[in-house]
Write a protein that binds this DNA or RNA. Structure first.
Lengths: 341, 341
DNA sequence: GTGAAAGCGCTAACAC
DNA sequence: GTGTTAGCGCTTTCAC
């Protein structure tokens, strides 16, 4: 515990009342400058720090927001958390990062944990919940939904252009001359999650490019890990399936795919071109560097924090849905000097 | 805010006093079972959740610990945070993850922020502070120091075997036939940080292998990023420096090195063998897979939480220093089928 | 075993 | 502009 310097001590030292100290701390405007200075001097001399719990108990705000991500060590979410922390800092908020494990239990725990009592609002990835469980999100605190799986819940929602991004990736592969493009990481049983949306974008992309859909090129993998990326490609190759392009539904899968192709001595991008999704920082540093869809992470973070702050401030307009801008980042894994016709 | 169900409401519903409700919540032993059940039923029916702030205000504990890491998106720290959260969960603690940015300002802020008032203790990476600033760690709350830079501070310290690990990596490269081994990521001006210790291990390893030290093979790079790894190798190659092995001081540098070697069409491991440090999850998935020193992250996390919990519990024995066990994980980047003599 | 009352440190409401 | 007072929800004496 920190030493128990209270407002009372500061007030005594500065020769004012506690109310005045509180006013100084809360940025109350109408204070005589010299009073403010005296108080600030006393605070510095005593090393006083506000007791957040007491403040919270009284005014109902903590200045903290929660961020519930599926996994901390997943590059996309780690990078996302970093951006969120920066954005929150700009508006004077601190971030309590939590982990749901992408499980139903973890998600429910996060929605209803003790931590919810000490955050003013929550930024929430609903992985682990079912698409029809939007009613679980009808909570009595400010909540902004992130990612996919659940649409139409009675809360603000910031998401990325899954369908359009996947389509762009697929079309790009086709433009590089690919005709047999693998969709790596599909999950056919899912409702409206990223897998479904990105698979939809993939099929739209094929259509746009005039390439027939071949179910034999759709590889189901779960979770979207590097290991599963390896497994998926290994399985295709072992089965003798012919392909010349891979649209991996996230970068981890793509990294695994690159690795397996490397092991099998299959040249990238000349024999097989690869595009991922998420554009994590690592993408630039693989061999070859991975082309990927950048889903507008910075924009998502900025808007999510903005919406949450508005809700915390009492804004009660109807729920909003924001889809961030995406961008295809072409790198070595898919850039053929002379596209195969 | 959650709906304001208080202990009073629960007590009324269960037909007991608030004290009894509090007793139930705090696991007080001497309660009539039927009373306990009635209270628990009331809690469930009303959806009551303890107000952590009020509880904290009264009893001085929050059940939260802080974890201050230099960067969230750095794979090593992200993985570390994940393990810490798991370990803390086991003992009923939640973790408030913070970011220092590896800057002095960030470190100081973390040591003295408002957050410190709502955590029972802090796990702290002192990057950004100077080696002689151990006195800054003489804080009045439970603190466990992690990583390097500062030794001899008046607090518990859990660290890794930097010297021994670096030596093992260097010796391993020598055993694979390397005679001109680059030390990538040195920082000659540092006190007792990881760079200094790992460089020391490198020189010890050379000595053990009977290889003369060549300052021309020591490459200073800061920060330890993939980009700097690329830069360092590029710079050596451009200068025409001859080398056949790389000891990269962390995995990020090693990934950058692998990438640059790939671009230059230098075969790994046959022409140049590479070993990293940290053994992040990604190491297995590069092309080729990266050999690395696994610094005992799980052990570090477990022991750090254990020590912090002891200190929170009032343990006031003298500061302890624990050095975790390390392990060399040999993979494709350094394993030559027939070591060059 | 359980209840009543005090008070943790702060801020909102209201004096002055 | 600044001081006084009440009370946020809880736990901790101390009764009984």
């Amino acid at each position: 515990m920190l030493v128990a310097v209270t407002m009372r001590d500061v007030a005594d030292r500065a020769g004012v009342s506690v109310k005045t100290v509180s006013n100084v701390l809360n940025g109350y405007r109408y204070l005589r400058p010299e009073t403010r200075e005296r108080v600030e001097a006393a605070i510095a001399e005593l090393g006083y720090r506000l007791n957040v719990s007491a403040s919270h108990l009284r005014k109902g705000r903590t200045g903290m927001i929660g961020l519930a991500v599926p996994e901390l060590a997943h590059p996309y979410f780690a990078e996302f958390a970093d951006v969120i922390v920066s954005e929150a800092e700009k508006v004077g908020l601190r971030v309590l990062i939590e982990r749901t494990g992408a499980t139903r239990e973890g998600a429910l725990t996060s929605l209803d944990s003790l931590q919810r009592r000490i955050t003013d609002g929550l930024l929430f990835f609903p992985l682990g919940l079912e698409p029809d469980e939007g009613d679980l999100l009808a909570v009595d605190y400010p909540l902004v939904l992130l990612g996919e799986r659940i649409f139409g819940a009675p809360v603000d929602h910031v998401t990325m252009a899954n369908v359009e991004g996947a389509r762009a990736a697929t079309v790009h592969l086709a433009e590089q001359g690919c005709r047999r493009i693998v969709a790596l990481g599909a999950r056919l049983d899912e409702g409206m999650g990223s897998p479904t949306l990105r698979l939809q974008g993939y099929t739209e992309g094929l259509e746009e490019a005039g390439i027939p859909f071949d179910p034999g090129l759709v590889v189901e993998e779960n979770p979207w890990s590097r290991q599963k990326g390896e497994d998926g490609i290994a399985q295709l190759l072992d089965a003798g399936v012919d392909f010349d392009g891979v649209f991996a539904m996230n970068d981890s899968l793509a990294f695994g795919a690159l690795h397996e192709l490397y092991i099998r001595r299959i040249a990238v991008p000349s024999e097989v071109a690869v595009v991922g999704f998420d554009d994590v920082e690592d993408a630039r540093f693989h061999e070859p560097a991975l082309s990927s869809i950048a889903p507008g992470t910075a924009q998502i973070a900025r808007e999510a924090v903005r919406m949450l702050v508005e809700r915390i401030g009492g804004d009660d307009q109807p729920p909003r849905l924001l889809v961030a801008d995406f961008e295809l980042r072409v790198r070595g894994s898919s850039l053929r000097s002379t596209p195969t016709p």
